[in-house]
Deep mutational scan, measured.
Amino acid sequence: MPEGSASLQLAVGDRVVYPNQGVCRVSAIDVKEVAGQKLTFVTMRREEDGAVVMVPEGKVLAIGVRKVASAE
């Protein structure tokens, strides 16, 4: 991610809310080559049905992904 860009610090195992998809758990953060460029992807699995969603790390905030609020 370019320096100075806002990002959401995620780790494998974090629970997040993905708008219009529901609650997901981060299952992987991997670098993949797409069209000759190396990009970091956040892979999330929906808790409702296990569907897998992959989002480029740089788009996580723009999409509206946020961490699940704690009970505290």
Rank of each mutant, 00 (worst) to 15 (best):
F41W: 14
E72P: 11
E72S: 12
R45C: 03
T43S: 07
V65G: 05
A28F: 05
I29W: 01
K67I: 15
T43K: 05
G22N: 03
M1P: 13
M54N: 05
V53C: 05
L10K: 01
G50F: 03
D14Q: 04
R66A: 10
V23A: 05
Q21N: 11
I63N: 10
M54I: 15
R66V: 15
P2A: 12
R25G: 02
L61E: 13
A51C: 04
P2T: 11
T40M: 08
G58E: 15
V55K: 02
V65W: 03
R15A: 05
A11Q: 13
R45K: 11
V34E: 06
V16K: 01
L10D: 00
E33I: 14
E72I: 11
S7N: 11
A69V: 12
S70Y: 10
A69R: 09
S5A: 12
K32S: 06
G4V: 13
M44G: 01
L10I: 08
V68P: 07
E47V: 06
V12T: 03
E48P: 04
V23F: 14
A35G: 14
D14S: 03
A28T: 05
A6L: 11
E48H: 10
V23H: 04
V23I: 14
K59C: 15
A28H: 06
T43A: 04
D49E: 02
V34A: 04
K38S: 07
C24S: 02
V26E: 00
T43Y: 10
D49T: 04
A35K: 10
K59N: 13
G50M: 03
K32T: 07
V26K: 00
L61S: 14
M44N: 00
Q21H: 15
I29R: 02
V26L: 01
L8C: 01
T40E: 02
E57C: 08
V52K: 06
R15H: 06
V65D: 04
V52L: 13
E57I: 15
V26F: 00
Q37D: 06
K38M: 11
V60E: 05
A71K: 11
A62G: 10
E33M: 12
K38P: 05
T43M: 06
V42I: 15
G58S: 14
E48W: 14
C24G: 02
T40C: 01
V31F: 07
G4K: 12
A62C: 07
N20V: 05
K59W: 15
E47S: 02
C24Y: 15
G22A: 04
S70A: 11
E72R: 09
R66H: 13
